[in-house]
Structure formats: structure tokens, C-alpha cells
Design a protein around this nucleic acid. Structure first.
Lengths: 226, 226
DNA sequence: CGTAATCTTGACCAACGTCAATGTTCGTGG
DNA sequence: CCACGAACATTGACGTTGGTCAAGATTACG
């Protein structure tokens, strides 16, 4: 994507919204015409079930778009909640879609980034359907760690990690108690350690091997992440 | 999408490939430049794990594109296997991408259909992470049934359903034996019945209510499904 | 028929969830 | 600075769900 397209998107930014930790910026079922982009802070996409349980679909990091489906499809099937105080920049959804209709390169770049997400989602499906507790947790952690590393948000073997235990449990489909058991096991094998709000991965390659994680090519940096 | 775009895609069709039941048309890791579209027959997208277990990611029905990610990202992270003898039409991936770069409306239509898929995938994630065996199986069946109904492939309360028990088990993340238990329960409540290669759903609304399924708007018919 | 594949079920075992109790951290008001 | 409470983390004991093994029934096909 060239300077020109980046400028087009940049020029459409309307506002910055600050959201407190724990608050939703998008709600399941909502018909919003606003498109957001995480500017700083962490968030999660999630769904609630009838019985009150929650599934975290994905961790949303700075640079990731939020509510694209809501804008293009008319309604959002998931909520998005800030985990830390977070700042979102707002774009006019209608205008962005209009821009897509004119600028094929831009639409294509977004399509490509969606397809990359799709790959990650497929693997998460496999993880939930077919892996045991330790593998699931380890996989989720190394995947997030690698995403952070690609964005320069790690410090060698350490990074910020503001998810609570419940959040991790809801992301990997385990109960909070069983998640603790899995974490204990992973720590005892020196694969990952969570402490305060930090994650420590002494040997990323070892954790990757343990969980079956393999790096997937991304277009971060060379591509749009509105 | 107008007649013109449909014609552009239509004109690029090169070939028809016939694949026997049980054969792969796309393999995990493959770097193919071919794009396919299911023309008749059933297929599944799936991934294999190190330990030999398999996760079925999705059922691919007539009209669905195959290997879009492979073409646009350079490699496929999943395999696609025919469940029945199936016919795929082949498109030149490079040409299709080139077409996207020129025709924004087309790129946008494909993006929109990817976003719809994404909604379905999110729900499947939730199902695997948070639902019990009966709900998972019921959900998978009613979702597939509704997709078939939208394409006019059902006959009131009945439709073709060529998946074997193992396939269903691999799709919903259960063992074959436990899948049988769930099916027995669903049948005993007259929610679904599988027989031969057919599925019978006496009261779709009842099964939907039981599993928490809600219809999600799709652009089938009005949109591209190459 | 006969062989292979698939379906189906029972008996038993492992993984994971629930409950409940105890630490630990952190923010707030005195 | 301390006392207090609220939210979160951690662990043990025990129950439930779902996996594994193994055997027999059924179907598909040569």
C-alpha cells in the first residue's frame, strides 16, 4: 500500500475515544456505523452465551481494526471490551466503505489482512477442538507473544500481559481452576511464567515446539492495519 | 455485484476438475496458484495435528470458493478434501487477484463474503470453547442444514448429508464414541436424525432453540460466491 | 458369500469442571 | 502510615463429562 492510500485513511480519522478498562466499545447485536482502530491499550473480542459463559474470540492489539464486520454487514455479532484503559480512533464507516468502492488496492489490502486473520482463527479452532489443556494455554500465550514481538512490544523474553486468569480461561475454553493447573504445569517446565501483568517466555522456540505453534507470515508493517 | 463482474469471473474459468470422494484438492502447506470453486459435491476444510488427530474447520458447499487464502497469501494452512465425488472449477489465481486490483466492487464483494464467514467462524469457536456435546453436535447440524436450505438443497425437513460419523466428530471436537451418545440423545428428543446419508430435522426451530442457533444474514444470491 | 469399512454399544478411565476455603494484591479512607 | 474491603489468584477435594478400548452389528461392494 502506498503513501496515497495511507493518507486517505489517515485523513478520515475523526476522533479519539478513551475507554476505561472493562468497558465495551462495541456490543453484540449493535448496529453501529463507526469503525475503530486501536491506538493504544489492549482489548478482546468476545461473545456471551445464554448461560452466562463467555468465549473470548481474539485479543485485539494496537493497530488492529475493530467493528469492520459491523460496518460492512450492518450488525456486530460480537462485543469488544477494553482490558486496559484504551484509546481508539474513530472513522466514519460509510466513508471508509465508499473509499473501498473506489480504491481497489485498499480493499484488496484489507481483504488480505482478513485472510491472515482467518488463518489464525482456523488454528484457534483446531486448538479448541483437538488440543489438551496445557497445549491450549501454551499455544494461546506463545501466539500472543509472537504477535507482540512483531509489533515491537516485547523486551527480549518479556512482555506486558494484562489479561486476568478468567480472561485466559475464557479464551482457551477452560475453567479458571483448570487453567491454573495448566499454568502451573507450564511454569514447572519453565515454558512460560505469568507474574503481575507480565509474561515471561524464557525460550520462545521451546514453547513453540511444545505447543505445535508455527509462525505464520503476516503483512504487518508492509500492509494496512488501519 | 452486476452482470459485468459476474461475466469477468465467469470468463476466467479454465477447467473443471473431478475429484473422487476422500481425495484432497488442496493440501496443507501447498503453494498453489490455483483458485477453485465448488461446482457440485461436498468437501471439508481441515487441519491435521502432529498426533494424527484432525480438525474439520468447515464444510464447503457448492458455490463456495476454495484456496483463496492460498492464492492471496502464498500458501494454504489447511487441506480441502472431497467427501463425495466432487467437481471444482479452476480459475487462474494470479488473474483473479489482478482483477481484484482493478475492480474495487469485486474485491469489496469478496471482502464482504469473507466477513460473513468470519461471523460463522466466531460462533464455531464459541461452540467449541463453551458448549456441551449435545449442543455442539446440534449446532453443527442445524447450521449446515440452514446453509443447505439457503441454497435450495433441502426438501422440507430433509436433506442429503454425506458426512460420516468420524467427520462430524472431527468437526465438533468429540470422539466418535461420544458423538454417538450425543446423536442418540438428540434423536431421542426428536431434534435431528441421521440415516443413511440423510439428515432429518422435523422442527428446525426447535433444534435452533435447543442449540442457541440464530440465523445470520447472508448475501447468498445477491452476492459473489465464485 | 466374504472382506473391509463403518456404525453402535458397554465398561472403564482420564481430563476437566465445580465447590469451597485460603492467600494475595491493591486501592481507599482514616 | 495503617486498617479495611474488594477483586483476584491459588489450591484441595470431589463430581461430571467426555475419551479409550474392545467387541459385535450393519452396510457396501467385489
Amino acid at each position: 500500500m502506498g503513501q496515497r492510500e495511507r493518507g486517505l485513511i489517515g485523513g478520515m480519522q475523526q476522533d479519539h475515544v478513551i475507554v476505561a478498562a472493562g468497558e465495551d466499545i462495541v456490543s453484540q447485536g449493535e448496529r453501529s456505523r463507526n469503525l475503530y482502530s486501536v491506538c493504544c491499550g489492549w482489548a478482546v473480542r468476545y461473545q456471551m452465551l445464554r448461560d452466562g459463559s463467555r468465549q473470548i474470540l481474539d485479543v485485539v492489539l494496537p493497530g488492529d481494526p475493530v467493528a469492520l464486520a459491523s460496518v460492512m454487514l450492518g450488525a456486530s455479532m460480537h462485543s469488544v471490551q477494553a482490558l486496559t484503559p484504551a484509546c481508539f480512533c474513530t472513522l466514519n464507516g460509510r466513508k471508509v466503505v465508499a473509499l473501498f468502492q473506489v480504491n481497489a488496492k485498499l480493499a484488496l489490502a484489507v481483504l488480505r489482512s482478513r485472510l491472515e486473520e482467518e488463518c489464525r482463527t482456523d488454528i484457534r479452532l483446531t486448538m479448541l477442538g483437538r488440543m489438551g489443556a496445557e497445549e491450549r494455554v501454551g499455544y494461546f500465550l506463545i501466539e500472543t507473544f509472537e504477535r507482540l514481538r512483531q509489533r515491537g512490544m516485547t523486551n527480549g523474553t518479556t512482555c506486558r500481559f494484562p489479561l486476568r486468569r478468567v480472561d485466559i480461561a475464557d479464551a482457551v475454553g477452560l475453567s479458571r481452576v483448570h487453567l491454573m493447573r495448566a499454568l502451573r504445569e507450564l511454569r514447572s517446565q519453565a515454558l512460560v511464567e505469568l507474574n503481575g501483568g507480565d509474561m515471561i517466555v524464557p525460550r520462545a522456540a521451546r514453547l513453540a515446539a511444545y505447543t505445535g505453534y508455527t509462525k505464520v507470515a503476516t503483512s504487518i508493517g508492509s500492509d494496512v492495519r488501519m
